[in-house]
Amino acid sequence: MSGNDRLGRRAAPYLLTMPGMLWLVAFFLAPLVLMVTLSTQTGNLLDGFRQTWHFGIYPQVIWQYQHQFLRSFEYGGAATIIALVVSYPLAYWIAFHGGRRKTTLLFLLILPFFVSFVIRTLAWQFILADDGIVLGALKRWHLLPSGYHALATSTAVISGLAYNFLPFMALPLYVSLERIDRSVVEAAGDLYASGRDVFLRVILPLSLPGVFAGGLLTFVPATGDYVNADVLGGTRNNMVGNAIQREYLEFFHYPAGAAMSTILMVLLLVGIFAYARALGTRSIQEYV
């Protein structure tokens, strides 16, 4: 091999990754740093913003939006747990007993993604509306008191989040369950483990990577979401996403929005990396 050739080989991976990585550095990493800078500026839209390193904005937004921060993590956590509990038996059934219908079932699982995320959420607004096709009918048949309402409650927001991100939970679960070597399960049965023991001591532990990956893929978007809270939650159940969106796009108070977004990013990224460290990024990345 000539020297020139060897040089080419060494440079090749950098040349290949350069355009993509430059794009990500310019429009993903650099903005994260710049957002922190923006958060410490003061001023307003008309007079312009100046860099004053005003870090006082951080305690200010934490104080002002503490409920939204707490609610986001609470709703995100609840939605993740619901998605896990609801989709585990489904993923299990498809992986172990899906047989020839496996492909069809998986297709049905991702079918909601063919309808836009915003439209899916709006559909729940139609379903849960006071005089809508479901609640309206139930009230007319006196199965529900006429004053009952489902929209504008925290339950509606959590259900919406759990619904929207359920496939993100179900698919990694399916992959991890599908990967389990059937002979291991067989062996447990041959060694006289009861059905319950086979599940609790063999299948469940082996599916944990899927649980962790699904948990991450569900929790992060659910916590950062504001569409569900906006459409289903009314005014009293908004999350940190709603607040960030308002500060940026309605009040044009960029520093406050940037500060909140920075806090959310730090909380989530620290969490994600701690999570990835503990479990190995590899195992999570395989499912992403």
Partner: peptide, 12 residues
């Protein structure tokens, strides 16, 4: 990364 952070930082 959550979408809201990607959007907010890019707007910044």
């Amino acid at each position: 990364a959550p979408e809201i952070v990607l959007g907010a930082s890019l707007l910044s």
